[in-house]
Design a binder for these strands. Structure first.
Lengths: 149, 149
DNA sequence: TTGGGTGCAAACGGTTTGCAAGTAC
DNA sequence: GTACTTGCAAACCGTTTGCACCCAA
């Protein structure tokens, strides 16, 4: 745990960025809600309880900074707000997501299958892959039980 | 070709929707630019040349309607506008996309690998999959040649 | 001390909506 | 004629930005 915070402090220092109380607070929340895939507004509301002066612009700017540093992963949604999560495992074997279209639950799952596919793409299209995103949309078990279709 | 238009007319009729000149014009453009992955604004600008009175709200509403009918596929982007394309093959073997992060080119590729993965997800998580989205982000061959990293 | 960081409020840009007028059926 | 559609402009909402003040190093 302490390792994560230290490594982040180092990354900030290396980039001439300052460890402000706002950045610490946001980091704290990202650690605490590690599997919650927080939206900006959710994070802002949580932070607000202990840090009422914090502005939402700062949340946006801080998250952008963290994404740039590779500390945080941003998940884009169509027009609805983006969601963020800590980038725990150094970019290796990044997990993917199942999005429940009824209740909004996000379930994580791991997969190695994509590597074969990446090789094929590189060979067939000469496309240089830097990142990928795989999502499945559907209904989580709970919503199915409720009879939602 | 005519088949597509007829099947769409039928779908409209079945749903008590009217075949207005605006819907026809938009359909025409979607057919003509079938592999262009048009944004709303691009489509609106093209339509405007021959149909200056057309409002952008109508473009949005028409595309929504077409998506609902399964005629059109919507690709969401983070905050940047969505893109649309005709849903030619009846939902079978839908192709995926390579997004060039430098020039914005979108390259299509087909894949069947995902079916195995879907099976695994259904077994392991009881999640009912309705749709999926697989994207690779990187550099197309032309941008690599320009020395962009 | 000083340049990066913050809070505020206004601006932005894609998308949606209310409403009166238009038109396919 | 009736209900679905449309055009317009205003509203929306997540996000960004300009600017004066603040504070970490």
């Amino acid at each position: 745990m302490e390792k994560i915070i230290d490594s982040i402090k180092n990354k900030l220092r290396e980039n001439d960025l300052r460890l402000t109380s706002q950045r610490q607070a946001i980091l704290q929340i990202l650690l605490e809600y590690r599997h919650a895939h927080l939206s900006v507004e959710e994070l802002y509301n949580i932070a607000h309880e202990h840090y009422p002066e914090l502005g939402i612009a700062t949340v946006y700017r801080t998250l952008d900074t963290f994404v740039e540093l590779g500390i945080v992963h941003k998940m884009e949604f169509g027009d609805k707000g983006a969601r963020y999560e800590l980038n725990v495992d150094d970019g290796q074997h990044y997990h993917h997501h199942l999005f429940c279209i009824s209740c909004g639950t996000i379930i994580e799952f791991n997969d190695d299958l994509l590597e074969k596919l990446e090789e094929r793409i590189i060979n067939e299209s000469k496309f240089l892959i830097k990142d990928h995103s795989l999502r499945f949309y559907g209904l989580c078990y709970e919503c199915q039980q409720k009879g939602i279709e």
